[in-house]
Amino acid sequence: MSEIITVNLKIWRQEGPEKSGCFEEYTQKITTEASFLEMIDLLNEDLNNQGLEPVAIESDCREGICGTCGVMINGQAHGPRKATTTCQLHMREFSDGDEIVIEPFRAISFPVIRDLVVDRSPFDQIIESGGYISVNTGAASDANLTPVPKEAADQAFDAAACIGCGACVAACPNSAAQLFTSAKLAHMASLPQGQPERWKRTETMVETMEEFFGSCTNHGECHEACPKEINLDFIAFMNRDYMKAKVKNRALSGQR
């Protein structure tokens, strides 16, 4: 049941991308029924009333699906609860008197815009480089013309569940974006519709990813941080597909 707790917050404040930042300390009283972001809302309301600028933190759907929110809470991306985004985290995970350190998701390619807000647009650039199936509107055949084995469709969904929040990069000691990229690749490579462009897509997306992010050393931190629990196996699929893409004679890929 709900109770009122007091938490000690250590929040990263940084005025702009070129400014230097530091931690500021705050205390906040809150009921355990509240969500983590509602706790920050309340803090911001108090700051505003005191004439201090509120903490910049992004969130949108607050249902754990849009991927807008995401901060490092006590050294864990999206905080201590497994498979949970920051917005779905509730204060019942914390106890009275806890210190909570809040930092933005960090990586060189995720520059801080302000306080806890970072720029994750390199993810869009990865998608732009090939994360699609080229089909013009109106050019599609009947949906049931191509049966897809249920297992394959399920795997495609597991991969496609990625919300693009960036927790994988934030949690990775190498700032690698393998989990994000491989999830999108596995989604499309699992489906018959994704086959024609499979090798080209793998090549361009991996190479774009490497322009921005580090190299995977198979720690597995990304999977632990991932609110959608995207599987590490997809990274293995991506590695294999990438090597195949480099070796394969694509002119023969129409043959069975």
Binding site: P147, P149, A153
Partner: peptide
């Protein structure tokens, strides 16, 4: 539905 399926939307299947 045809368009989305062709784009790779993983609709539930039997």
């Amino acid at each position: 539905i045809d368009q989305a399926t062709a784009q790779g939307v993983p609709f539930a299947r039997e």
